[in-house]
Nucleic acid binder design. Structure first.
Length: 260
DNA sequence: TTCCATGTTCCGCA
DNA sequence: TTGCGGAACATGGA
């Protein structure tokens, strides 16, 4: 479920498990390679170590001891798993690193919508791909947020989800933020006043923080949150029914009573 | 069997 | 020309 809270969780997981260990073997599924050959990837990773990580939006960057970074994007179904016993291997492994201590790190991606890259400079990558500032970046203050949102004209949900505007929010967490802020997903940006944008900004930071603390697990969010109610015919605490509508081709889940 | 999915990219229309 | 909304994409589970 890789939006910002999930990718941040994978980043911490990788930092806690797979750093500073010599890589002795690399296997990769070539379909997911983006702008890099299998040979180049192997050359960069073999006998190298993973030194540190960085996240921008839904992208995870891992610096190797040889200099270049490995860039991982998780698509809709990607995740990381670190394990020792071969029988713990997950089902759709697309990149597998074996370390000298016998453990392995798997990048799993069932639907192949993720990507594996070699990146010389993450900042350059962010610029080349027109990614907006990360939703949790230090310099994402309210004024910056407001100016970014005001620079767009469509539905508020679409703008929140646009990685070119703000990087990190996807379908599920944008729904949660709008729900907590009491704003209808199909509200046009021109219809929102600064007070509502302020509320949206505060809510975004709060929801992402709680999402990260839950390890990105939408089912584990406490009462009063929308994410555990997705997909079911559920009732909002207000007593109304949670509904689904299409916004820019995505499923938006919301409460028509609480969100106007 | 058909539909649907938490991702991005691309095309057509205002 | 630019930006937005929707379709398309790949894969497999319900």
């Amino acid at each position: 479920m890789p939006e910002l809270p999930d990718v941040e969780t994978y980043r911490k997981y990788l930092e806690a498990t797979a750093l500073h260990k010599a890589i002795v073997k690399v296997s990769v599924e070539t379909d997911l390679l983006a702008g890099v050959s299998e040979k180049e990837l192997s050359k960069t990773l073999n006998n190298a170590k993973l030194e540190n990580t960085r996240r921008h939006g839904k992208h995870l960057f891992i610096r190797t001891s040889k200099g270049p970074w490995v860039g991982l994007h998780f698509g809709m179904t990607g995740f990381l798993k670190y394990y020792e016993k071969p029988e713990e291997k997950p089902e759709h492994v697309r990149l597998l690193l074996a370390f000298s201590n016998g453990y392995r790190l798997a990048y799993d991606c069932q639907r192949k919508l993720g990507a594996i890259r070699i990146i010389d400079d993450p900042d350059e990558f962010i610029e080349d791909n027109d990614l907006g500032p990360d939703a949790l970046a230090d310099d994402m203050d309210f004024e910056t947020f407001r100016d970014i949102i005001r620079g767009s004209r469509g539905y508020i949900k679409s703008t929140l989800m646009s990685q070119k505007d703000i990087a990190g929010l996807g379908n599920v967490w944008s729904d949660e933020i709008l729900y907590q802020a009491g704003i209808h997903p199909k509200k046009k940006i021109g219809q929102l006043d600064d007070g509502q944008l302020r509320k949206l900004y505060d809510t975004m930071l709060d929801v992402l923080d709680k999402g990260i603390r839950a390890g990105g697990d939408t089912a584990k969010m406490p009462d009063g949150f929308l994410t555990p109610l997705r997909g079911t015919d559920s009732e909002c605490p207000c007593g109304g029914k949670v509904e689904k509508i299409s916004v820019s081709g995505r499923n938006a889940v919301y409460c028509p009573r609480c969100q106007t």
